[in-house]
Amino acid sequence: MNSTVGFWGEPTSTVDWCENNYEVSYYIAEFFNTLSSLCLICAGIFGSMMHSKGFDYRFSLCFIAITFIGFGSILFHGTLIFPFEHFDGIPMIFYLLILFYSVNENKKERKFGNWFPITLFLWGSIFSILLIFLGEYYENRIMKLVEFYIFQGTFFLMSICVYLHIIAIVINLKDEKGIGALMIRGSTIFLIGYIGWNIDYHFCTEMNKILNPQLHAWWHVTASYSCYSLLLIAIFDRSKTLGKNPKIKWVCIILPYVGLSDESEQYLPSKVMSSAERELLMQEVSVED
């Protein structure tokens, strides 16, 4: 929503969101949308830290992609310059492609050949090039809208495909404690955020007549939490298939993560003593006394 011109000049992005530009800081176009993007970075870093050992590298790539989405969102909302819009959108596409690969190749034996990941990578690369090419015409309003809806349409269809696969995984894991609750929580939070995204996009004028609740900023918060939570289901399923006995665990009853049954042993200074070893140690202590 154009209100004033700040450090980065007039917005050239496809969409100027409902937050008043440069209202809080002369150097940040959309302060609250930029600040809330930190949630994506935190989700990616937290996920990388909690799943750094014992998990497939594909999931590390997913968490890295979430982190890049956050940085891209900061560049985009902080400047509202059209080229920086790609730093926000392209990592989102690659995140979905990696997750799409993960929910399809979730068995011990690969169902598809090398052509599958190569095709997905080429798809993401071609899509990125298309966005960048269309960006050359950012001064043309029609071309900007074409690019926007190509991205939104592709993102929506890919999200539906991934979500349907995750539903199938949850049904298969219906007896696993915590999976159903994680699915319901992640889906509910995502739906609330997505409704807020649409209200912010379509009813900005009406909201500003009353009070702007910064719904797009809240969308960043809900999207980071829900995408992270649903990714955990794919991680859990893959780990269970590989026989690693995963468990859904929580930090402060808010932040979930997948723990492996042998993870506590990784941090023990030494192995647990057997009863015979313990008895021998007690005898040695008695002799010394």
Rank of each mutant, 00 (worst) to 15 (best):
L242G: 03
F236Q: 09
T241D: 13
M273F: 11
G243P: 04
W250E: 11
R278P: 03
M207G: 11
E279I: 13
S264C: 00
L280S: 15
C227D: 00
V272L: 12
G243D: 00
I254H: 01
K209H: 06
G180Q: 08
F190T: 04
A217S: 13
H216M: 06
P269E: 07
Q283F: 02
E206M: 06
I248C: 06
I195Q: 12
L268N: 07
I195H: 10
E265V: 01
A223M: 07
T222G: 02
N245I: 03
L242F: 09
F236K: 03
Y194L: 15
S264D: 14
I254M: 15
Y267I: 15
V272G: 00
T241L: 04
I199Y: 12
L231M: 01
R278M: 05
L191W: 07
M207C: 10
A223H: 07
Q283V: 03
L230C: 05
R185I: 11
T188R: 13
W250S: 14
S187Y: 04
N208A: 06
N245A: 09
H216C: 05
Q266P: 00
G259M: 08
Y228I: 06
S264T: 11
T241H: 13
L182M: 12
P246L: 02
K249M: 03
P269K: 00
P269C: 08
I233E: 03
L268V: 07
I179E: 04
V258S: 06
A181S: 13
I179P: 02
Y225R: 03
V272M: 06
I210A: 03
K271C: 10
F190P: 01
S239W: 04
I233R: 07
I184A: 15
C227Y: 07
I184V: 15
